[in-house]
């Protein structure tokens, strides 16, 4: 069944690649004059366009891109002059780490509040929790990021305002996930440093997600609470903790996982802005540069990777369903 899913993804990926290619090239703007800068003469601009193949017909350029892309070669970035795949893999771990920690932050905040709000629904705390969720979902994350930088960074000097790790800390790259690599190396200083650098961006990114998940958790628990099997569980004398965590939450989990899976996409989108605000060297930050420079090759490669990640995450979500609910089969 897994094979069918993967084969089914091929036309989707092809479609995305064509759409992205077309949109990038239709959008006005000229990477050559931008990269050559203020000293470029007209003759030089024309020559470079030719060297980079940008004067070829669009379909020829697309074919060139596609025939290399199927072999895993996305060409060289116009700006960096280095292979797109190298640039992406250099930065992917930073984004993955940020997304994971944001997800963790979101889950740790939202599920307890959601469950509590459902159990004590219509209480003062429930209203406060839901009010907070509304605020969380309404805050634009670039604004929240800048506020955190200003207060926690600039005024209180509690957390670092930019980057992934402090100066002078050397880490042997194994997974390139700093938290993991520092644990492997047993380097506790590096671990703290990486964690401290992650906190503000992860909270920025995780807040709106937490807000959504809190509301979903609350409503799914409320629904499950009224089911017969909960009454049965209570009737057979199970403690309240076991009823809530083992029966209610587990049954509410399918909805929550679906939302988390879908929101992971939003998390990656959000990372584009958050990474720029915090100078966090991930692929979101790279995508902004690629698009604003019209670095076609880099942008195409990056969006392709974004699409692939959506696909993989969706697949993982489906596999998780099976784990949570054994009745479901792919």
């Amino acid at each position: 069944m897994l094979r069918r899913r993967i084969i089914g993804a091929i036309p989707v990926v092809l479609g995305i690649s064509f759409l992205v290619f077309l949109l990038m090239h239709i959008a006005p703007g000229d990477p050559v004059s931008l990269l050559l800068g203020e000293d470029a003469t007209d003759a030089e601009i024309q020559r470079t366009r030719h060297e980079w193949g940008l004067d070829q017909p669009l379909l020829v350029q697309y074919w060139e891109f596609l025939s290399h892309a199927v072999r895993g070669d996305f060409g060289k970035s116009l700006k960096f002059g280095e292979p797109v795949t190298k640039l992406v893999f250099e930065r992917l771990p930073a984004t993955a780490e940020l997304a994971f920690v944001s997800l963790l932050v979101a889950v740790l905040i939202s599920i307890p509040i959601g469950v509590y709000s459902a159990i004590k629904h219509d209480s003062l705390l429930d209203h406060a929790g839901m009010g907070l969720a509304l605020v969380g979902v309404s805050l634009p994350n670039f604004w929240l990021g800048i506020m955190l930088i200003y207060f926690l960074g600039g005024q209180l000097n509690l957390l670092p305002v930019a980057g992934r790790i402090d100066y002078g800390i050397q880490l042997e790259p194994v997974t390139r996930l700093y938290l993991v690599d520092s644990l492997i190396a047993g380097n506790f200083t590096a671990f703290w440093s990486a964690l401290r650098h992650l906190l503000m961006p992860a909270v920025t990114l995780g807040t709106s997600l937490a807000a959504i998940v809190t509301r979903i958790t609350r409503s799914s628990i409320l629904e499950v609470m009224r089911q017969d099997f909960i009454t049965t569980a209570r009737a057979k004398g199970l403690g309240e903790t076991a009823v809530v965590w083992r029966h209610m939450l587990r049954n509410a989990m399918i909805t929550i996982i679906t939302i988390l899976g879908l929101q992971l996409g939003a998390l990656l989108n959000g990372s584009v802005i958050t990474e720029t605000v915090f100078s966090f060297p991930g692929i979101g930050d790279l995508l902004i540069q690629a698009i604003s420079l019209r670095d076609y090759r880099l942008a195409q490669g990056l969006i392709f990777f974004f699409a692939m990640m959506y696909f993989v995450v969706n697949l993982l979500v489906d596999l998780l369903y099976m784990l949570v609910d054994p009745r479901i089969k792919l």
């Binding site: 800048i146 930088i149 960074g153 600039g154 005024q155 000097n157 670092p160 930019a162 605000v277 100078s279």
Partner: peptide, 20 residues
Amino acid sequence: VIFRKVTEEAARVAGLEAGQ
């Protein structure tokens, strides 16, 4: 000497005020 690219101006100013 350490150079770091920080494009967000609020972050540069905050980093300076904090002594980072």
